[in-house]
């Protein structure tokens, strides 16, 4: 069982690092057989521990000029409406890239993405702000991205080590 846990944790870490590792390489990296790798990944996927695989594009270089904004939402709850209810309504919109309930000055933090600033504005004012539970919205347009999903977007550092050293 401990070995199974170790395999799950190690493969999850490896796939988070690079989801494109081949089964063969994963087996070598995690010290497992290829069959064990396939079975464990299937298990991680089936159980919902892994929800998907995505590339991490540099937003500054991606082909289409996408506009991104962070949106803060304040809401009021009543007997019939919970955070989950509001979250479900918001999460359905394709413009919403991520949605989190947070502590602090506001309730929900959204990452919103669309083709133009106008589209983002219209989405926030027409779709989000009009929900009856939403009492306030604050929209921050993203001006530059320096680090995303743990990856720095700047140039890669050069390896300035001596090529051979004892």
């Amino acid at each position: 069982m401990a070995e199974r846990e170790r395999a799950r944790a190690e493969l999850l870490a490896l796939l988070c690092e690079n989801a494109r590792y081949s089964t063969t390489d994963l087996a070598r990296l995690a010290d497992l057989s290829e069959d064990e790798v396939d079975a464990t990944i299937a298990e991680l996927e089936d159980s919902g521990a892994i929800r998907g695989y995505q590339a991490v594009p540099d937003p500054n270089r991606a082909d289409a000029e996408r506009v991104r904004a962070l949106v803060e939402l304040n809401v009021t709850l009543d007997r019939e409406t919970s955070y989950d209810d509001i979250a479900r309504r918001l999460a359905g919109f394709s413009e919403v890239e991520s949605l989190r309930l947070v502590s602090g000055d506001y309730d929900f933090a959204l990452d919103v993405e669309a083709d133009s600033m106008d589209r983002v504005s219209r989405f926030v004012s027409e779709k989000v702000a009009r929900l009856p539970e939403i009492t306030q919205t604050v929209t921050h347009y993203v001006m530059d991205t320096y680090k995303h999903r743990g990856i720095e977007m700047g140039g890669r550092g050069e390896d300035d080590r001596l090529s051979v050293s004892p």
């Binding site: 080590r161 001596l162 090529s163 051979v164 050293s165 004892p166």
Partner: peptide, 14 residues
């Protein structure tokens, strides 16, 4: 080794 070009080094001790 230090002079060669396009070398991948697995000779580094750091």
């Amino acid at each position: 080794a230090a002079e060669a070009e396009d070398v991948i080094s697995l000779g580094v001790g750091e």
